[in-house]
Design a protein around this nucleic acid. Structure first.
Length: 470
RNA sequence: GGUCCCUUCGUCUAGUGGCCUAGGACGCUGCCCUUUCACGGCGGAAACACGGGUUCGAGUCCCGUAGGGAUCACCA
């Protein structure tokens, strides 16, 4: 970085009209990564100028989602609505400078003009009052303030993701800056806030690319420097359709509830639309070192649960036992209906690496972990019942045999089982399978003798006898 | 409909004119490991949307076509 380059300042600016959805989460992540990469600042601004649709719950959900994802912002979240006076001041300045004008058109008139323009295949400019003075009567009516867009020339934005994009100025509508009730619109507010907050890089969804050209004119009219733009493609559902609320767009807290861990989510979101050669597993630390805008893809990407699952499984395998246990403890206690006893915790800690290796999501861990809790008698799966069928007498013999093992260690246990199988001239599998079924009820588990060791001699004995009559 | 954007295996992607017989990952699948389920290892099937150019040479550059997407509010 050159020493006189301005410090990088990025921002995430969601509107609080719902949860933090997956696309927003990725936008936030990219902004955060970019700021961290360049030792800059990552700001959060709540775009709440639409008073009717903004809610405190949504603000809370967004904050919670970001904190779950581990995206810390610099400074407090800023409310856009709180800056309304400042926005108004800018609109009035533009009006005074002759770069904006009063518009007395009613929404009915506008709607009619709009549909007419569309029918004629022409852009709707909204400029009926652009060069018109109101008569005495009209001047008493409420008016909105619209920007006076240039009608000549073109503007090229060098988007960091989309490349050079050019739009003819005559396509730009005289958008409203200040509504007739005196409140600022988003188009005005974003520009003023981004400028006031010193935002240097605007990284946001592709759906704003068109807006960039309109906003550019506000910067120009105020004589402000234009930030770097980077419009990242949207995320689509697994079927290729746009994600909407009724179509797979879930809030991040729902992914948390489904049992995904933040590390996996970050990695997944990072790779969805961005790449670093063939690298797939990328730690957050590594991502901060590598992230750039050039390698963001240009096309929309589909959301794929299988890949997220794979990443989630990977990150769970790399976590230590205490961490995973703390993540599932509550759910596990609800699942078994009981507080975890010390002996159960000890068993779980010992078994956790083996449990995590087999799980894709946290609920899988809960289920597998329940094996190590005192939940006798176990419920059997159909397959387990079939395995156990007719083996009652053998289970009794095995239970007694195991009770005589003097040192309850995996290898000793294995020895005992092998000696039993040898004496009975049975294949090892014929003995192991029923034991496993009796101990687990059919749930997946790791090495059988490890399982026996962790469960303890008495619990193992009891579980074998539980199934002796089947 | 106007404007703008996009298009490599089913999915995420590598690829910046010769290293491409197109690579990796997920998913699918064969084999190995194994007391189950996993993990892991070794394989397999699977893509440059189409048509024209430019070039000695194109997945890579240009132009069309088709398909997809975004946007066109006194919402953000």
């Amino acid at each position: 970085m050159q020493k006189d380059m301005p410090k990088v300042i990025t921002r995430f600016a969601p509107s609080p009209t719902g949860f933090l959805h997956i696309g927003g989460a990725r936008t936030a992540l990219y902004n955060w990564l970019y700021a961290r990469r360049h030792n800059g600042q990552f700001l959060l601004r709540i775009e709440d100028t639409d008073r009717k649709r903004s809610t405190d719950e949504a603000v809370a959900a967004i904050l919670a989602g970001m904190s779950w994802l581990g995206l810390d912002c610099d400074g407090e979240a800023v409310s856009q609505y709180a800056q309304a006076e400042r926005h108004k001041e800018v609109a009035l300045k533009l009006l005074a400078d002759g770069k904006a004008y009063r518009c007395y058109a009613t929404s009915e008139e506008l709607a009619e003009l709009r549909s007419k323009a569309r029918d004629e295949g022409k852009p709707f400019l909204g400029d009926v009052w652009r060069d018109k003075e109101p008569d005495a009567e009209t001047a008493k009516r409420p008016y909105a303030i619209r920007i006076k867009m240039p009608r000549e020339g073109e503007v090229t934005i060098n988007d960091e993701v989309q490349g050079n994009v050019t739009v003819q100025n005559k396509e730009l509508d005289d958008m409203i800056l200040l509504r007739s009730d005196g409140t600022p619109t988003y188009m005005l507010a974003v520009v003023v806030d981004d400028h006031d907050m010193g935002v240097t890089h605007v990284i946001r969804g592709d759906d704003h690319l068109n807006n960039a050209f309109r906003q550019y004119q506000v910067y120009a009219a105020m004589g402000w420097s234009v930030p770097v733009f980077a419009h990242i493609p949207l995320i689509h559902g697994p079927d290729g359709k746009k994600l909407s609320k009724r179509h797979g767009a879930l809030g991040v807290e729902e992914y948390a509830e489904m049992g995904f861990v933040p590390e996996a989510m970050r990695n997944y979101l990072l790779r969805l639309g961005w790449s670093h050669g063939d690298d797939e597993i990328i730690s957050t630390q590594q991502a901060i070192e590598w992230f750039n805008l050039e390698n963001v893809g240009r096309g929309p990407a589909r959301f794929d649960f299988d890949k997220l699952d794979n990443l989630n499984a990977h990150y769970m395998r790399t976590m230590n036992s205490e961490t995973i246990l703390s993540l599932v403890k509550n759910e596990l206690e609800i699942y078994t209906g009981d507080k975890l006893a010390e002996i159960e915790i000890q068993r779980l800690l010992a078994a956790m690496p083996s449990i995590a290796e087999r799980a894709k999501r946290l609920p899988d861990v809960v289920e597998a972990a329940s094996l190590y809790c005192n939940t006798r008698p176990l419920k059997l799966t159909e397959k387990a019942s079939a395995t156990l069928s007719g083996n009652g007498p053998m289970l009794v013999e095995l239970a007694e045999k195991l009770l005589s093992v003097s040192s309850w260690k995996s290898d000793q246990i294995k020895e005992a089982i092998i000696s039993y199988a040898t004496a009975k001239e049975l294949k090892l599998g014929k003995v192991m399978q029923p034991i496993r079924a009796a101990l687990t009820g059919g749930l997946p588990s790791g090495d059988l003798t490890d399982l026996l060791e962790i469960l303890g001699q008495q619990e193992s004995y009891d579980r074998l006898l539980d199934q002796a009559n089947t």
